[in-house]
Design a protein around this nucleic acid. Sequence first.
DNA 1: TGCCGTCTCCAAAACGTTTTGGGAGACGAC
DNA 2: GTCGTCTCCCAAAACGTTTTGGAGACGGCA
Lengths: 343, 343
Amino acid sequence: MAVTIRDIAERTGKSITTVSRALAGYDDVAPETKVLVRQVAVELGYEPNLLAQRLQKQRTDTIGLILPTFGPRFSDPFFSEFLAGVGNRAARSGFDLLVSTQPPGEEEINAYRHKVQGRQVDGFIVVRTRRQDARIDYLRRAGVPFAVFGRADGTLDFPFVDEDGVLGMRLMADHLARLGYRRVACIAPPAELMFAQLRLQGLREGLAEHGVLLEESQIRVSDLTQRGGYAAAQSLLAEARIPDAIAACNDLMALGAMSAAQSRGLVVGQDVAITGFDDIPMAEHSHPPLTTLHQPIYEIAATLTEMLLAIIAGKTPEQSQVILKPHLVIRRSCGSAAQPAQP
Amino acid sequence: MAVTIRDIAERTGKSITTVSRALAGYDDVAPETKVLVRQVAVELGYEPNLLAQRLQKQRTDTIGLILPTFGPRFSDPFFSEFLAGVGNRAARSGFDLLVSTQPPGEEEINAYRHKVQGRQVDGFIVVRTRRQDARIDYLRRAGVPFAVFGRADGTLDFPFVDEDGVLGMRLMADHLARLGYRRVACIAPPAELMFAQLRLQGLREGLAEHGVLLEESQIRVSDLTQRGGYAAAQSLLAEARIPDAIAACNDLMALGAMSAAQSRGLVVGQDVAITGFDDIPMAEHSHPPLTTLHQPIYEIAATLTEMLLAIIAGKTPEQSQVILKPHLVIRRSCGSAAQPAQP
DNA sequence: TGCCGTCTCCAAAACGTTTTGGGAGACGAC
DNA sequence: GTCGTCTCCCAAAACGTTTTGGAGACGGCA
């Protein structure tokens, strides 16, 4: 049977109040008593029952993270790194991490409600924002602490960290245009995702500055996976006039696109340029290595967690709305060496 | 303020006992009362306080998963898929998933102890077994329910799912040998990992059947990441006589090795064959696509979770020791087309 | 009429903590 | 001798549930 505070009380001949206070380090218990109690506690291998503690304290010391997955299975190096960032930072403050997956939709808000009202978590990290984000609306209304990776349409009155997607894709567009690419295609995420919007806009604006038009017909919407990128690129490359550059909105799709180009016998970086966004570890080791935009996923996750912890503690976070500047990582997939002829 | 069972009691004029029993569906409460109570419950937006419920019921309805990470950050598509498998299966039975990360070592067992004694979880999923696995020893001794992905040295008296690593690498060795490869190198995981042992053995035995010796000098130990695979392959390829095939013990290292080979101007599948193990989604879309061994990660995770849930429920799981046969997925990275000359 | 079931209901205890609101005793000062 | 002030301790209430062990009302039956 598990050892409780009551066992220590009996063993030491003190009351459970005193034991509790001794363990908590209050100074209305005699030093010798403290020593005695603590000694007996380790002797008995006492560990406090967190359920009881939390019920009493009305806090859970747990933060929630509900991953919006499309299919039931998902394999995304992006999220495993993000998760590590949240988990490690949370653990450092003695917080646990409750993880679940839930496809966007009706049930999703219920999952949040359930965890909030069932007093399972003190707050949430929200990821992969949508333009109209019901999760944010709900959490705001319910007054639950939360911190968001990404922004959303409407008033930005909540704490978030986001990368500057517009700037990022402008950098990329600039890079591509300078290399002489004129017929640029894009593999975009589903339009309801907030970053789809921003990244597309950045690409469009960046190209426009060089007098290059991003044609609507050259935009394919896909699902952020390699498989999706592969299919989108196939479709782009099956046209009569193929693009000379494909800017994918994340690395996974870019890698899929590279695979598609190669399966058609094209040399990536020579016959067609392909670029990504995120700079996952894979990007460095693909063939050719992928030109992409770097964002510090682990640090973003840690920062968000820190913000959330501050809010939960009732403090105002040091920084509560952060927009990071991604930087361009130029590798081989856009052919910096072998440049296409200027038209 | 949160609505409790007491609020419902006051509103309906019944006792809290009756409300509790009505909600739980006991049949010692009148049908009309049940209806009334339930109606008021939804009216008030009642959600039970899980902390209180769990404290009383002495169960947590939560399973724990502590990921053994080497560095603080890790980005592994393998685990994100595994996580989804566990999470989804657990959710289906109303269980939560508590995730944390902890590098192997002293602190690790404490992390387990802490969660067990603090009554935070009902059981654990253990991943990436070591030959001498202190986690398993501890959980077994403590009588905590658990299920393991992988095996360990010593008596196998615990529930697990594992792939047949020996068979898998034998298949691979056979494939390589049939293609005419004679000078085979291996990038192996750290020796303390159980599957390192098994996979190396399989490779060795499989090659031996074709009269090929896996030389000790051709084995490089690495850390399961792309970066590690890259470095290991660089070291192998810097030798005077380079191998004609490199069998990596997981896909991530294989992809890193491909990158290393390519950076030295070698054509993978022609100048050197490279193979992996796991069949992560990336393997299909690398260039060239990676020959590897497939294991159904998502299903493994779901199966393990099911086993664990059965044990927690006090039932004996339908199957408690599963060894899956991985199957060979032949792609281009070992040059099935362009075979090297027989020596 | 008295007894026994059957239906409904409920007060109180329990889960393991923390916090509140004192209380007893020692000691000095007046 | 009284009062005040410390120092150390503790009983009881509280957190929100579930379970235990009845209890009252009512009808049927001998």
